[in-house]
């Protein structure tokens, strides 16, 4: 442990990696419960176009990717609303276009830029100080936004129609969620790469859902799974020279499998002590 923290690049990687993992887990829970899990995958493709644009224009690829990703996330919402399309169709259109733009820009640049590879496959160990601060700042912004809008986001996720009749500005909140997703995808891209960023959003949250009894529990468990995976993934990278991105995702998946198994055992073998008290459809009438 002492060895790891004595290296500046590992300190930066740990700080950024843990911050991003927390953000991905929190947001991922809302996304998968809204059946929007693939938005991470789709926006990651769009992000490829943004990174290529940044490299082509010689500006910060992360900032370019963020701008493109945020615009695409809002565009997906608009296209869905105005064209009456399903979300996955709008996502499919934007992700393909984003990828196509990226391929054209790479081709126009004349060579396959080495930098682009690090964005595709992730290279958290090469994260720069500026990117660490950016990750921390954006993570704080995401956590603050989710904290302030927590109850509205839960209601929107659970039942958008009823949320609207509670005076919640559903469209505005969906736009907030889309922007947060875009930002999170860009942050996650640096940790595990464009190709695996969806895993960072989906798997910890799916794992958290296995045993949680309430939304807050699910969120805490998702964050816990994400943090453990990123931390352990970095240990694998440092001590065994494995790719950090792949290790993080495989560890995420392993924890998911573990929790899934526990759930199966819990459901099949251990009977709930309250099971006998579950009312049937024929329980006595209502209180008056």
């Amino acid at each position: 442990m002492e060895n790891i923290l004595s290296y500046g690049f590992m300190q930066r990687a740990l700080v950024a990696g843990l911050a991003v993992s927390v953000t991905c887990a929190i947001l991922g829970l809302f996304l998968i419960l809204r059946k929007d899990a693939m938005i991470g995958h789709g926006l990651a493709h769009v992000t490829f176009g943004g990174v290529a644009l940044g490299l082509f224009l010689k500006v910060s690829p992360i900032l370019a990717a963020m701008a493109v990703s945020v615009l695409a996330a809002l565009g997906i919402l608009k296209l869905k609303e105005k064209a009456g399309l399903y979300e996955d169709t709008a996502l499919g259109i934007f992700s393909s276009v984003g990828m196509a733009v990226g391929i054209i820009l790479v081709s126009m640049a004349g060579s396959f830029n080495v930098n682009l590879l690090s964005f595709l496959f992730g290279n958290i160990l090469a994260i720069e100080t500026f990117e660490v601060w950016l990750s921390l700042g954006l993570t704080a912004a995401v956590i603050l936004t989710v904290s302030l809008c927590y109850h509205e986001l839960v209601y929107l996720t659970f039942d958008p129609e009823s949320a609207a009749t509670a005076g919640i500005k559903v469209k505005r909140l969906e736009a907030v969620l889309a922007v947060l997703s875009a930002v999170t995808v860009v942050l996650g891209m640096k940790v595990v790469g464009i190709l695996l960023v969806a895993a960072l959003i989906v798997i910890p949250s799916a794992a958290g859902l296995m045993l949680a009894g309430s939304f807050r529990q699910a969120m805490v468990m998702s964050v816990f799974v994400a943090v453990i995976s990123v931390f352990a993934g970095m240990l694998c990278a440092f001590y065994w020279d494995l790719p950090a991105s792949g290790s993080i995702v495989i560890l995420n998946f392993s924890i998911f499998l573990l929790l899934f198994s526990v759930r199966i055992i819990k459901t099949r073998v251990i009977r709930s002590p309250n099971a006998d008290h579950i009312l049937t459809e024929h329980e006595p009438g209502v209180n008056k």
Binding site: L33, R34, K35, V154, T157, F158, D159, P160, L209, A212, G213, S214, F215, R216, Q217, A218
Partner: peptide, 13 residues
Amino acid sequence: TQSGTLFPASVQE
């Protein structure tokens, strides 16, 4: 609800 049995909300929530 659109999330069915998977949604982790308690009755109180």
